[in-house]
């Protein structure tokens, strides 16, 4: 451990509210990148299939694969990664399985769409099977991440059933965002207006989810309240308001609303998509960084220490 990290750890351990750093700082950034990439990869897979954007399929697979590599890079002992299937009650193991299932299924499902002349076709039984497999993997990828956080009983800010839903919303809208970025470069049957509408819809729902999540989680635990405070007026306020809220939600919503009145160019939509992606990354990052561990104070400490009667014993 570097001298600085050691120093910071010691300060953290002495603090009432100890910040979570493992999944956000230093090599922890790889994990955030992994979460971001697998999330948008899964979303992109869904929308690329829906709108039949073949390059989108490639991007989706690439994003998930890169995300997987980022995960490996994060691990303290990457060479033992294959052991992560052992305990299937854990959401990480499920996610790991999902990732492998997705990559295998998606590659096999995409191949006939990209390179005709494969021994199987996209619409044949095998093709449909591979597609189904990829969709199962995709679903797991969308669902697991939020659950990994939500299973973190030590971090009350994350320990909420709302978080998985929020992360699903982000995955979906990440998929749309990637497509928007791709549109200027690829031919598509989808109407830009329609996609812009979906963009607006996913951005609004993500915004609603974020607001709902923060509102609900505040009341869940003192540590979660501390986390929210850190996001809205603490050390994380700049990245949260500029990145997560501004770039990721306000701009896409405003532009999306404008699109209801004025037609938007593909370039503007691509820019909105790119900003959304930046916002998505910051959402993952700031939510991770805002995690504080349960402060360990005796249950009922107030009755032990706070009461005046304790004084004159």
């Amino acid at each position: 451990m570097s001298v600085i990290a050691h120093d910071r750890l010691l300060t953290d351990l002495g603090a009432t509210f100890r910040p979570q750093r493992e999944w956000a700082e230093g090599p922890g950034l790889y994990l955030i990148a992994g979460h971001f990439l697998t999330g948008i990869g899964a979303g992109t897979w869904l929308f690329a299939l829906l709108f039949d954007v073949v390059p989108g399929l490639v991007v989706a697979i690439a994003a998930v694969a890169l995300g997987g590599l980022a995960h490996l890079k994060f691990l303290g002992r990457p060479a033992r990664f294959w052991r992560m299937v052992r305990a299937r009650h854990s959401w990480i193991a499920r996610g790991f399985i999902g990732m492998n299932v997705f990559v295998a299924g998606a590659v096999l499902a995409a191949l006939p769409r990209i390179a005709p002349g494969m021994p199987w076709t996209a619409d044949g039984a095998a093709g449909r099977f591979f597609l189904a497999v990829s969709l199962v993997g995709m679903a797991i990828l969308m669902v697991y991440k939020g659950n990994v956080y939500a299973a973190s009983r030590g971090v009350p800010f994350w320990n909420s059933p709302v978080l998985p839903v929020l992360y699903i919303a982000y995955a979906l809208r990440g998929g749309v965002a990637v497509l928007l970025v791709l549109f200027p470069f690829v031919a598509t049957r989808a109407s830009a207006d329609f996609v812009a509408l979906i963009e607006l819809w996913t951005a609004v729902s993500a915004a609603v989810m974020v607001a709902f999540y923060l509102a609900v989680i505040r009341g869940a635990h003192v540590a979660a309240r501390r986390s929210v405070a850190e996001l809205v007026r603490g050390r994380l306020a700049p990245p949260f308001f500029l990145g997560t809220v501004g770039a990721g939600l306000v701009v896409p919503i405003v532009v999306g609303l404008a699109g209801l009145i004025y037609p938007l160019s593909l370039t503007i939509l691509a820019l909105v998509g790119a900003l959304s992606l930046v916002g998505d990354f910051f959402a993952k990052l700031t939510i991770a960084k805002a995690g504080f561990y349960v402060p360990v104070v005796p249950a009922g400490m107030s009755t032990w220490y706070g009461s005046a009667s304790w004084w004159r014993r």
Partner: peptide
């Protein structure tokens, strides 16, 4: 010998 260093357990432990 089995741990991969994913640290999910650290986030799960409420007692640091």
């Amino acid at each position: 010998d089995v741990c991969v260093g994913c640290r999910a357990c650290m986030q799960a432990c409420p007692y640091g």
